[in-house]
Amino acid sequence: MAIAKLGAVVLDCPDPVALARFYAGILGGEIKIQAEDDQQWVDLEGVAGTTLAFQAAPGFVPPKWPSAEESQQFHLDLTVDDMDAAEAKVLELGATALEADDRKRSFRVYADPAGHPFCLCAG
């Protein structure tokens, strides 16, 4: 029996509103700024049954990917129907490709504008 339920997946970043807009452009959902005056915490609601949240982190340093010396900690796998169309859209929204283009794999690796790695995965 579970003792908890997942409340949110939270990404630390320098600009929570900007990163929420980036992911809303990919995943849809509704952006909810939790404190209008400081914008330190922003939720993206209505995404796959859970909340993706963004928290301001002074001194944020993005993970290095790939790196044998440092752990990336975690990444998001985003399932898509059309890899090429999804790739064009995430790049337009501000993503950066992290690997050489390998069209034979079922996934492609990118970084969001704050530097968090994520994958587009064939659905």
Rank of each mutant, 00 (worst) to 15 (best):
R105V: 07
I31D: 10
Q73R: 14
A2S: 09
A18Q: 01
P14G: 07
V17T: 05
A85I: 04
R108S: 11
Q73H: 10
R108C: 12
T96W: 03
G115D: 04
Y23E: 05
E69Y: 10
K64C: 01
A88V: 12
P16V: 01
Q34F: 11
E92T: 00
L120M: 02
A111V: 08
D38T: 12
S71Q: 01
A57E: 07
V61F: 05
V17C: 12
R21M: 00
E99M: 05
V80K: 03
I31A: 11
Y110N: 00
D37W: 11
K32L: 11
K104W: 04
A8C: 15
V90Q: 03
E99Q: 01
F107P: 01
D38P: 05
I33A: 05
A53D: 11
Q73F: 10
A20G: 02
R108T: 09
L98C: 06
G59T: 04
L19D: 00
V61T: 06
G7A: 15
M1Y: 13
E69N: 12
A95Q: 04
D43Q: 03
H75Q: 04
W65S: 07
K89P: 06
V47L: 08
C13N: 09
V90W: 11
S71I: 09
Y110D: 10
K64Q: 13
Y23A: 07
E70P: 08
A48V: 02
G94Y: 07
A20D: 05
K89V: 08
V9L: 13
F74E: 03
V42N: 13
E45Y: 01
S106H: 02
G25I: 07
A86N: 06
D81T: 06
T51C: 14
K104P: 01
G25E: 04
E36L: 13
V10E: 08
A56K: 15
P66C: 09
G25M: 04
T79S: 14
F107E: 10
P58F: 03
V90L: 06
L93F: 03
F54T: 10
T79A: 14
V10A: 04
D82V: 12
F22G: 02
L52V: 10
G123N: 13
P14K: 05
C13Q: 03
R21W: 01
V47I: 15
S67H: 06
G7L: 14
E70N: 15
I3A: 13
G115E: 07
L78H: 03
D38K: 12
S71C: 12
D112E: 12
P14M: 03
L76E: 05
G7V: 13
D101C: 03
E99N: 11
Q40T: 15
A86M: 07
L19N: 06
F107W: 15
K89E: 06
D112V: 00
V17W: 10
R103D: 05
L19M: 09
H75G: 10
F107S: 04
K64L: 08
D77C: 05
L44C: 08
Q72N: 14
A35M: 10
L52S: 11
T50K: 12
L76G: 08
R108N: 08
A35K: 10
L27Q: 06
R103K: 01
A4R: 15
L93E: 02
L11S: 05
D112H: 13
S67K: 09
G94F: 07
D12A: 06
A111C: 10
G29R: 11
I26R: 11
M1S: 14
S106E: 14
I33H: 02
Q34D: 07
E92Q: 15
L93M: 01
A35G: 02
G94A: 03
D102T: 01
S106A: 00
E45S: 14
K32D: 09
